[in-house]
Amino acid sequence: MTTPPCLDWRPAMLAECLEDKIAVVVIGHNEGERLSRCLRSVWASDWPAEKLDVIYVDSASTDDSCFRARSEGARVFASTQPGAAAARNTGWRVSHAQWIMFLDGDTVLDPHFLRNALKILQKDESCACIWGHRRELAPHQSCYVRVLDLDWCYQSGDTLFCGGDALFRRSALLDAGGYDATIMAGEEPELCYRLRCNGWRIRHINAAMTLHDLAISSFSQYWQRAVRAGYAYAAVSRHTGALWQSEVRHSLRQAGLLLLVPLLSLVLLTWGSAALLPWLALCLLMLRSAWRARWRSQDTVTLLLYGIHSWFEQLPVCCGIWRCWHDQRQRVGQRLINYKRSPS
């Protein structure tokens, strides 16, 4: 019986088989039907199925995620540590493929992204990873998702970091030692920081990559997600000594202005209508933010909501920053902050 080429023991043939093999590492926790949808989108890609190594890494799910992953043809592994960084490390290290596509279990892969991104990576040996446009699957499911969808918008070209979905060169991951599993949020920017310090480039391309199911339907979820972002800002800025320090200062400054508005309004109450001036100034600042974001959307209502969001979210972001600073002072390990609800 003839041995299938990719199982042949000869190094030359094995190298040839791995040259264009892509390991797709999907991570998740209690994703339910979202995980099935994600894995189906991987197999529906225009990249040949025999050149895919689909891996699912589970983070202590209590639902049927592992069963779903196996039924969709994925190899299943369990992460031994909490957090996305540890799960991604488990995934890429069990495969010998030269190219690693990371996906979150709540995403849907664009059918053409793997082919488009790999062409660029193969031509540019200085590029560690390629990422494209991630947008929301159902942006109008709530006002929260509607505005957060615009946060995924980035200009094409070299970037400081990528998000959770990206196609990586294996040699770059080996060079950096993979993700830092001690970081519970912001692990991708921290990895990209180390890669750039080693001379690698991170590139964002003008192509669809994934659709994401944020599934935020309540204010409490919105608040927790912003707290998580603030925690990540503080943790990564402290860890790297450089990245996201300006974001931390910006959030603290904006939150301070927000808190100053009602105080000024109270002081000006004795002057009658002058008490409205601080609120008017805040509205103008929100309108300015909406105007600056006009390249992200052509919908006026969405932009106005985004202007409000870009200021208001600084309050929970600062709560996350302070929580991280408190944990660092108390020498407490980083917290895993989850804002998502398991699908029913």
Rank of each mutant, 00 (worst) to 15 (best):
A215V: 02
L191A: 10
G199P: 08
Q221P: 11
H204V: 00
A235C: 08
T240P: 05
C192P: 10
I216A: 03
G256L: 05
R203V: 14
G230D: 11
R194P: 04
G230S: 10
L258T: 08
R201C: 10
S237T: 02
I205M: 15
H204R: 15
Q245T: 07
F219D: 10
A226C: 15
C197Q: 14
S218Y: 01
C197R: 14
A215Q: 15
A234H: 00
A229V: 07
N198Y: 05
P262L: 08
Y231D: 03
L260W: 09
Y193M: 00
R194H: 14
C192Q: 09
L257E: 11
P189V: 02
W200R: 08
Q221A: 15
W244G: 01
C192W: 03
G241S: 05
R238Q: 14
T240C: 11
F219S: 12
A208M: 13
L195W: 04
W200P: 09
A226H: 03
Y233G: 01
V261K: 02
V248A: 03
L252T: 07
S246H: 10
A215N: 15
D213V: 00
W244C: 04
R249C: 07
V236H: 11
G230P: 10
S237L: 10
L260N: 06
L259S: 06
Y222M: 15
V236Y: 08
C192Y: 03
E190W: 03
R253G: 03
L252S: 07
V261D: 06
I216P: 02
A232P: 12
S251C: 12
